[in-house]
Simulated scan of single mutants.
Amino acid sequence: MSPPLDAQTTARADAVLSRLQLLVTRKLDGLLQGDYVGLLPGPGTEAGESREYRPGDDVRRMDWPVTARTTLPHVRQTVADRELETWLAVDLSASLDFGTAQHLKRDLVVAATTALAHLTVRGGNRIGAVVGTGSMLRRLPARPGKKEAQGLVRAIARTQVMPGRSDLGALVDMLNRPPRRRGVAVVISDFLAPTEQWERPVRKLGVRHDVLAIEVVDPRELELPDVGVLTLVDPESGALHEVQTSDPKLRRRYAEAAGVQRAAIAQALRGAGAAHLRLRTDSDWLLDMVRFVAAQRHARTRGTTR
């Protein structure tokens, strides 16, 4: 267990949560009107209506009786389960306590958790989480109900970030044990740990669940500003580094290395079969989430799920 937060930090976390919940409720209410299809529109289990086959449709959903009757290939649409279980793997490594724009990366983690809880907890759906910070791994059991979901988000927001980097692979693996019925699994992290540490657990998670990976990024992790000598602190080790940012070659090498790193992260997530949402500390995170959900739904109507 992490040590308790002081009263001032707790009060700040609660105030941030109150604003977040109001913002999320105002902007996301109505987004899931109509038949419930979940945050990630998956194949579901309940039979729905048939429609004509489109390129990209899963051939395992072919409706052969309708195809024979009409002489045109048809697929059977399905409706996602109405009681959905969503599990979050929330990475609160020390590297998340960083931000140079509108938010800290940690704030985006809490914001994304708040939005996911709002989108998920309805109709008896349950949401749970595993949280990692430093060497601490904590499980918050999945429970139904708005009040319980708010308690889960509050517990995550009040988690004190500990020194060191969490083992992201071990954190994700906590969602694989014990085996659960098919649902949605969400991994929220900056994914700065080596890909070989977490790629296999995410791939294993995708065998049973629909997986969403939310990558949290700060613009200074992608490129350095030209501000002369800059002293940088590694939040996980405390090591100090002085960097001469006025050197254009250094800034170019940094940007190229960051681009390679982010491309490797995206490729690993894609290879693991996870839907990938990137949230930046210098952009409207809620608008990015709304666009992502809309894109997922559009993909579903075109016969694909990712």
Rank of each mutant, 00 (worst) to 15 (best):
S237T: 15
S237W: 05
S237V: 08
S237H: 02
S237E: 10
S237M: 02
G238P: 05
G238M: 00
G238H: 00
G238C: 01
G238Q: 00
A239P: 03
A239R: 00
A239N: 04
A239W: 00
A239K: 00
A239Y: 00
L240F: 01
H241K: 05
H241D: 02
E242T: 10
E242R: 12
E242Y: 03
E242L: 10
V243C: 07
V243F: 10
V243P: 08
V243Q: 11
Q244E: 15
T245Q: 06
S246P: 09
S246W: 13
S246V: 08
D247Y: 08
D247F: 06
D247A: 07
D247P: 13
P248V: 01
P248I: 00
K249R: 14
K249C: 09
L250S: 14
L250Q: 11
L250Y: 10
L250K: 06
L250T: 12
R251K: 05
R251F: 10
R252Y: 11
R252M: 10
R252C: 11
R252V: 04
R253Y: 12
R253N: 13
Y254V: 00
A255V: 02
E256A: 04
A257F: 10
A257H: 09
A258I: 00
A258M: 03
A258E: 11
A258P: 06
G259F: 06
G259M: 05
G259K: 06
V260D: 14
V260Y: 09
Q261A: 13
Q261S: 13
R262L: 12
R262G: 11
R262H: 14
R262T: 09
A263Q: 14
A263L: 12
A263V: 06
A263T: 13
A263M: 12
A264S: 14
A264W: 10
A264Q: 15
I265Y: 01
I265Q: 03
I265V: 12
I265F: 02
A266V: 03
A266L: 04
A266S: 10
A266W: 03
A266I: 02
Q267W: 08
Q267P: 03
Q267M: 02
Q267G: 06
A268N: 11
A268I: 03
A268K: 09
A268D: 11
A268V: 05
L269V: 03
L269C: 01
L269W: 02
R270Y: 13
R270T: 15
R270W: 12
G271W: 06
G271P: 03
G271S: 04
A272R: 05
A272G: 08
A272D: 07
G273Y: 10
G273P: 09
G273A: 05
A274F: 07
A274I: 00
A274P: 06
A274C: 05
A274L: 02
A275K: 09
A275H: 14
A275Y: 06
A275L: 08
H276E: 05
H276Y: 12
L277C: 11
L277E: 12
L277W: 06
R278W: 03
R278P: 11
R278C: 04
L279V: 02
R280K: 02
R280V: 00
T281R: 01
T281Q: 10
T281D: 15
T281E: 14
T281S: 14
T281C: 13
S283D: 15
S283Q: 15
D284F: 03
